[in-house]
């Protein structure tokens, strides 16, 4: 069973959206539990989950499918989206803004009442099986100056906003995910949260829950707390020597 610690009413909201067959958009900073949440919901709703990590050269055919050559003859291969459609699965497009905006328009007919996908190559229109659901995620971080979701895409989704959970909950997650002591988790979380004060003021992003989990795992594995912090909270957050020093000083301030 996938571990997910609900933070607000996101589980209920997602269930409702799934019941009403409404596509879902998960917004939130990196490493705050979006991917984990989708895995959890898939298991909870008892549907298969198909995940696509989006990047710039993802093409529409990569999603829907294409003919390939096999032993001299051509065979149609379903793409992940088509597979999800046929299986009634949850299709999760992670970091969707990384894909070119025009590619995402293939989602449009799937996200309204039609719930169908025209496959030109096969000359057929594929209707989604019952459990089919599109979920996309993105991080509306500072890079939104250059990367934005098209309005016509965005408006087709029910959006759930994620953020890092409250301090106590975050500590609970870190402890559960790493097996570290509550005290270690608490200290790591207070450190990590402090680093978010520098979001967009020298650091592109603060420490994510994921990064704290990593630090905690290093501690569980035998590393000392300051060392674990050094290689996660400092090393992974910045290359800027001044910012590194400030972070190191913070670690010393918090850990004593």
């Amino acid at each position: 069973m996938v571990y997910y610690r609900p933070v607000h009413n996101e589980v209920q909201l997602f269930e409702l959206a799934a019941k009403m067959r409404l596509p879902v958009l998960l917004k939130g900073p990196t490493g705050c539990g979006k991917t984990r949440f989708v895995r959890y919901m898939a298991e909870r709703l008892n549907r298969p989950l198909i995940t696509v990590a989006c990047q710039e050269d993802l093409s529409a055919a990569d999603l829907t499918g294409r003919f390939t050559l096999e032993g001299g003859s051509t065979v149609w291969r379903d793409g992940p989206l088509t597979t999800a459609l046929r299986q009634g699965a949850i299709c999760y497009l992670d970091e969707v803004v990384e894909a070119r905006p025009d590619v995402l328009t293939v989602l449009h007919p799937l996200t309204d009442d039609r719930r169908s996908l025209p496959l030109e190559r096969l000359g057929e229109e594929l209707h989604a099986k019952d459990g089919f659901l599109v979920v996309i995620s993105y991080n509306p971080g500072y890079q939104s100056v250059t990367k934005e979701l098209k309005e016509s895409t965005r408006q087709r989704f029910v959006s759930l906003s994620f953020d890092y959970p409250p301090e106590a909950v975050e500590a609970e997650i870190v402890a559960a995910e790493s097996g570290c002591t509550p005290d270690v988790a608490k200290r790591l979380v207070s450190l990590g949260r402090a680093s978010r004060n520098l979001r967009a003021h020298g650091l592109a992003e603060g420490a994510s829950t994921r990064l704290m989990v990593y630090a905690a795992r290093l501690v569980t594995g035998g590393l000392s707390l300051p060392e674990a912090c050094e290689s996660t909270l400092v090393g992974s957050l910045t290359d800027d020597p001044e910012m590194s020093k400030a972070l190191r000083e913070l670690i010393r301030s918090v850990l004593g």
């Binding site: 402090a194 680093s195 004060n197 520098l198 003021h201 020298g202 001044e242 910012m243 020093k245 400030a246 972070l247 000083e249 913070l250 301030s253």
Partner: peptide, 10 residues
Amino acid sequence: RRLGAWLRLV
């Protein structure tokens, strides 16, 4: 720079 960052952090 780092003093400012540190004060902001804490």
